[in-house]
Simulated assay, not measured.
Amino acid sequence: MIYLDYAATTPIKREVLHVFNEVSMNYFGNPSSLHDIGSEAMKLLELCRKELADKMNGESDGIYFTSGGSESNILAIRSLVDAYKDKGHHLITTATEHSSVFHLFKQLESEGFSVTYLSVDEYGHIRLDELKKAINQRTILASIQHSNSEIGTIQPVEEIGRILNENGIIFHCDCVQTFGKVPINIKKYHIDSLSISSHKIYGPKGVGACYINPTLLWKAQLPDTTHENGFRPGTVNVPGIAAFTTAAQIIYSEMQENIKKYRALRNRMITLIQDLNLGIMVEGHGDEQLPHIVGLSIPGIQGQYVMLECNRYGIAISTGSACQVGQQKPSKTMMAIGKSTDEAKQLIRISFGDQTVESEIEKVVDVLHSIVKK
């Protein structure tokens, strides 16, 4: 089967799996234990913490390991909001955030916080003027994703960070889709907190991390927790973290080569689609765009139908949003960029990975052609 859903998850690399197995056998101690076996595990854990921080130009004591991107988003935002709620009850986010962030802000609203949901333009970009106008004296935190997971548009995070920093507002950034795909510079972008995940970069599932600027306060969500300096309960997954770190080292070493490869594949796909004059629309920004994600919509055809038809032809893609057979929900990203409810259900997402080749791109375009004709 042709796999073109790498933005959803990636297969673990052999080298990464090897590290996971070796660490499981040789560094099995609980890093919180005081004996030598625990101490060895702790040394490895701290090396991983520093390595991940260095990849993003952050501080090692700002890294907290979690079970993945969603938990990182929730714990980071919650911990910071609880620590600074005495200073204000206003928060800022966007209408296109990942569900883990979007639903958390809805919950915070129900608890009495005031939330501004920034709109986006037809490409998925926020408007910086709107961000500036949303800020008030009671604003304590803004959470704005680095890139949209459905259409791949990259937000102007450096400008966003500068605006928020100048106004003394905490900037949380969901970097799950961008970590390892494009450079991230915590200090240059004035990012105070971010989230990353292992399984998006050929690492094991169930592992992630968040970063919180060590100069900021945060409030533990479960009192008296000892693991990860009280940030998260549960014995730390040292083998998974070591494997995650290995995956990060590999993908960072290949980043520039991958960017070039994915741009070529994306351009090839768009050219083939345009040459066939199928009426398929390419969503997202033309330039500020993750090269490995292609969001497409086919007028008059639901994305779920296209996904199932592609599956029948041996091609795995996604609709870009969670769905069930016979009940596809409209993409909130598509709604936010100005699409109608019916149009928002037409989104499909094709995403490339390290095993993707040009012949697979040509095959999927042929299949899309046959679906449109039928």
Rank of each mutant, 00 (worst) to 15 (best):
T245E: 13
T246N: 15
T246Y: 15
A247M: 11
A247N: 12
A247E: 15
A248C: 14
A248R: 12
A248E: 12
Q249L: 13
Q249M: 15
Q249V: 11
Q249S: 12
I250N: 05
I251E: 13
Y252R: 14
Y252C: 14
S253T: 13
M255Y: 09
M255S: 09
E257C: 09
E257Q: 08
E257I: 06
E257F: 06
E257M: 08
N258E: 15
I259R: 10
I259Q: 14
K260L: 15
K260P: 14
Y262W: 06
R263H: 05
R263P: 03
A264D: 08
L265F: 04
R266P: 08
R266A: 09
N267F: 00
R268I: 00
R268L: 01
M269Q: 00
I270K: 03
I270G: 02
I270P: 03
I270H: 02
I270Y: 03
T271A: 05
T271D: 08
T271Y: 05
L272E: 07
I273H: 00
I273C: 00
I273L: 01
Q274V: 03
Q274L: 05
D275T: 06
D275R: 04
D275V: 06
D275P: 12
L276Q: 13
N277G: 12
L278C: 11
L278E: 08
L278Q: 08
G279N: 14
G279K: 11
G279V: 10
I280S: 03
I280P: 03
M281A: 07
M281E: 07
M281D: 08
V282T: 02
V282G: 01
E283L: 05
E283K: 03
G284T: 02
G284I: 03
G284M: 05
H285P: 05
G286K: 04
G286F: 02
D287M: 05
D287K: 06
D287N: 07
E288F: 04
E288D: 07
Q289Y: 04
Q289A: 06
P291A: 08
I293G: 02
V294A: 00
V294H: 00
V294K: 00
G295F: 01
G295V: 02
L296V: 01
L296F: 01
S297Q: 10
S297I: 05
I298M: 10
I298T: 09
P299A: 11
G300I: 11
G300E: 13
I301C: 09
I301K: 09
I301F: 15
Q302W: 14
